[in-house]
């Protein structure tokens, strides 16, 4: 792993984002808009807004990073730039690491902006520190990124890549405890949810919002998922093709 190449890779991905102001604007505006809508949807039941909106702060970065990563990697494959990189000295870990750092930083800024907006404007109450919430949001974003990277290899077109969101992410979202506490679900679903990375991401976010318990265990579990998913993602990058 060369730090110089890792940084070059990170810088390039950020530069591409910088040249795309519309995507940048959407990254901040759409979560803020959705939170605002939620606030008014639940205007008759503010309690529910507190519960759902907090978790949503972790869901946005994950959905966005999943989509961005799968489309970006697919673009590298179809445009031939990935092949160009595979004969260069750039290592696979540097390729993936560059994306992870660049999008991780982006999600940090996104989580900071959206949570600040939710706390100050929408009066969302967070019992734990905002910094911890942002940290949890970055973990969520990295999970989205890692899944996006791992599945992008199974997509040949952008259409397919986008279909992986309802196919892979939404089932996890339904089982993650966002709709109803996981312990209240049928036993079998609860067991399945224990195997899904998103559940721990949502758990961590919930713990920060209610300030109940430490998120160290969740962080470690997520870290294990990240390592496995990123390793799977790097296996799907082939230097030689048939």
């Amino acid at each position: 792993m060369s730090i110089k190449r890792l940084m070059a890779m990170t810088k390039r991905v950020l530069l591409q984002l910088k040249h795309d102001p519309r995507t940048l604007a959407l990254l901040f505006v759409s979560p803020a808009l959705l939170m605002t809508i939620l606030k008014y949807v639940y205007s008759s039941n503010p309690q529910l807004f507190q519960r759902v909106a907090g978790s949503m702060l972790g869901v946005f970065p994950m959905l966005v990073m999943f989509l961005i990563t799968s489309v970006a990697t697919l673009r590298e494959r179809t445009s031939g730039t990935l092949e160009r990189l595979m004969i260069s000295p750039l290592g696979k870990s540097e390729f993936i690491g560059g994306y992870a750092i660049a999008f991780g930083l982006t999600s940090m800024v996104q989580a900071t902006a959206v949570s600040t907006y939710a706390i100050w404007v929408l009066k969302l109450k967070i019992a734990g520190p905002q910094v911890t919430l942002i940290y949890a949001a970055i973990l969520d974003a990295l999970i989205g990124l890692a899944i996006g990277l791992a599945v992008s290899t199974f997509a040949n077109t952008e259409f397919q890549a986008i279909q992986f969101m309802p196919a892979i992410l939404l089932p996890q979202l339904l089982l993650s405890g966002l709709l109803i506490p996981r312990s209240a679900m049928p036993r079998i679903l609860d067991d399945i949810s224990n195997l899904l990375p998103l559940s721990y991401a949502i758990d961590a976010t919930k713990r920060v919002i209610t300030n109940q318990g430490s998120i160290v265990a969740d962080s470690l579990t997520i870290a294990v998922f990240l390592v496995v998913l990123l390793a799977a993602g790097s296996l799907t990058l082939k230097r030689q093709t048939k």
């Binding site: 110089k4 190449r5 070059a8 810088k11 390039r12 530069l15 591409q16 040249h19 795309d20 445009s79 031939g80 730039t81 092949e83 160009r84 990189l85 004969i87 260069s88 000295p89 750039l90």
Partner: peptide, 29 residues
């Protein structure tokens, strides 16, 4: 990898970067 260069038929460059940014990026590898 340090000794071979290859350019494909389908001009493999980053459309969303400028010319000089493309070259600077590849050079930095």
């Amino acid at each position: 990898r340090h000794k071979i260069a290859y350019s494909t038929q389908s001009a493999s460059v980053y459309s969303d970067l400028t010319c000089i940014e493309n070259i600077r990026y590849f050079a930095s590898l």
